[in-house]
Design a protein around this nucleic acid. Structure first.
Lengths: 151, 151
DNA sequence: GCTACATCCTCTAGTGGCTAGAGGTTCAAG
DNA sequence: CTTGAACCTCTAGCCACTAGAGGATGTAGC
């Protein structure tokens, strides 16, 4: 019914990404035509829409894999699904807190810059000396820089 | 003066990360003792603190590299530095807007889940059909999922 | 001096979620 | 029948690390 390009256009997921999802087993291997090209139906399209929407909401692919598996069994309780969604919500909230702290600090730093010489540059001073920070963003991410939260 | 482990302890930057920074030219190659082990002084320590602090504020390593280069010339105007900081601020603000939208949507989704069966699960329904979304988070990120903002 | 054992060294490979490109095949329109 | 877009597979690259193998060195106690 649908070539990979058409599917891409309909879902907004790029062609190489669709092939990647197939490769990692997130999408089932579709049928092929005589020339060996992939052909998709509406089921694939729905599945891909689901994946895309979940990605937009920041779910990692592993969670999406699990959500897809769970959604294939409509009679089951949705507790597990709910748990994944709540975990993602907590994750996003955590990132928001962190990002707000970064924002505050960056704003303060930029505001204080009077744009003179490097010697007196507030940005350089603040970066070099954490003591000049207004907020205690460091405490929030010790012991290590929480890379996930910076994202 | 300082072994790599001591430097790591003092700055909060992990040992392999320090070596990685050296490898990519962010930190200069330090002297070595007779056994070939790295020895650092306070200059390295300050530089590494600078890097760490900038990383905490979300600056990419390439920007940090530039900031370090600029800060080495104290008489120059700090315009370029200011520009980098402002760019980073804008970046963080962009992420905040996006993350807030995600948060709203996730919260709505989780709230609406009555925790019945998968069949009636609001989470699955919403993920499968963007029309059920409250906010128009999709419009904000078209044409592609803006991965940088999800971070 | 000897024995543990922590710390150090280099090197390679893996993470997530794609993206880019090479080098070739197939399809659809005119 | 030709042209050119779209498709195929495969490998490598992105960021900023992190993990682990396999071995060398440093240090503390006896």
């Amino acid at each position: 019914m649908l070539s990979i390009g058409k599917l891409s256009g309909l879902t907004g997921v790029k062609v190489p990404t669709i092939r990647y999802y197939e490769q990692i087993g997130l999408l089932p291997r579709p049928e092929r035509n005589d020339g060996g090209q992939r052909i998709y139906d509406n089921t694939s399209r729905e599945r891909l829409n689901f994946i895309r929407h979940a990605r937009e909401l920041g779910f990692p692919l592993d969670d999406i894999r699990e959500l897809l598996a769970l959604s294939d069994d409509p009679a089951q309780s949705c507790e597990a699904i709910d748990a994944i969604a709540k975990r993602q919500l907590a994750e996003v909230e955590h990132r928001l807190v962190r990002l707000n702290a970064l924002h505050k600090e960056l704003e303060r730093m930029v505001e204080q810059c009077t744009c003179g010489t490097v010697q007196t540059c507030r940005v350089i001073q603040v970066l070099g000396d954490h003591g000049l920070c207004g907020t205690d963003h460091r405490k929030m991410m010790l012991p290590d820089i929480d890379q996930e939260c910076l994202k």
